[in-house]
């Protein structure tokens, strides 16, 4: 972004020079352009500053938009296990009905500023102090990661597991078996789009319209449905589901 600012300042200095030292029409035109230069600079600079300092939005794809980064910094607080949840201890959970809410960004509450408005927190509020609703939601996770999350939880075993399932849970089975959806999002983007909040805002507003359509014209959902229609991929994913159920059954028997 610095080269762009430098060029703009250089252009303004040139206009000033012509205005001061030039004669006749050139000086007059340069004077008019200086007014435009100052106005454009103030507007663009003001917009950049406002977006940088004041604008936070849970845009998609949140991890790549500067507004999304601002949103995460402002609203997403994680506990020591990496979950957007309170800091539980084994003592907190002892003697309570322990409920694991496990899932992806839905359970984690992406886009929801106040965590108390997420469904696990609402359940906690309604169920009362005899229950502990532990949020193991993680954006971008799939069945394999979610099963591992409930198995690895260190402070208690669950009495109840709420498993929030989304159809994109089949993605690991699909990708690992060669059914890959090609994202239209370019991995390399101009530095200006990454550094300037204004350029980033404009870029993603324009680009977002087509980001769920591959270059071959296949939507992300059509790709997921094709994974379920592939009997081999479905059988692999069914085994992933079985592993989660096996764990739940083993805890229930214990």
């Amino acid at each position: 972004m610095l080269p762009v600012i430098g060029l703009y300042l250089l252009f303004g200095a040139g206009l000033l020079l012509i205005n001061r030292r030039g004669h006749g029409r050139a000086s007059t035109v340069a004077g008019g352009l200086i007014v435009t230069w100052v106005t454009v600079g103030a507007l663009v600079g003001g917009a950049e500053l406002a977006l940088r300092c004041c604008y936070a939005a849970s845009d998609t794809p949140m991890q790549w938009t500067r507004a999304g980064e601002n949103w995460i910094a402002r609203y997403m607080a994680f506990n020591s296990l990496g979950y957007r949840d309170r800091e539980w201890t084994a003592e907190d959970l002892a003697g309570k009905t322990v409920i694991f809410a496990v899932g992806d960004s839905f359970t984690e509450g992406w886009g929801i500023e106040d965590p108390a408005l997420r469904f696990p927190d609402r359940l906690q509020a309604r169920l009362g102090s005899g229950y502990a609703v532990v949020n193991l939601g993680k954006g971008g996770s799939s069945t394999l990661h979610q099963t591992q999350a409930v198995m690895d939880y260190p402070y208690a075993k669950p009495d109840i597991i709420i498993w929030q399932y989304l159809l994109n849970d089949i993605d690991v089975a699909a990708i690992s078996n060669g059914l890959v959806w090609e994202s239209p999002i370019p991995l390399e983007r101009p530095a200006l789009i990454e550094e300037s909040h204004l350029a980033n805002f404009i870029y993603w507003r324009l680009f977002r319209q087509g980001m769920f359509l591959s270059p071959q014209g296949i939507s992300q959902w059509a790709w997921l449905y094709s994974a379920y229609d592939d009997s081999f991929i479905w059988s692999i994913h069914a085994q992933e589901i079985d592993r989660m159920v096996d764990y739940a059954d083993s805890v229930a028997r214990a």
């Binding site: 939005a57 845009d59 992406w110």
Partner: peptide, 13 residues
């Protein structure tokens, strides 16, 4: 959540 974010809203939660 919004036109730019298709995650479930607080109301849906």
């Amino acid at each position: 959540v919004s036109r730019a974010d298709a995650h479930p809203s607080a109301a849906f939660n």
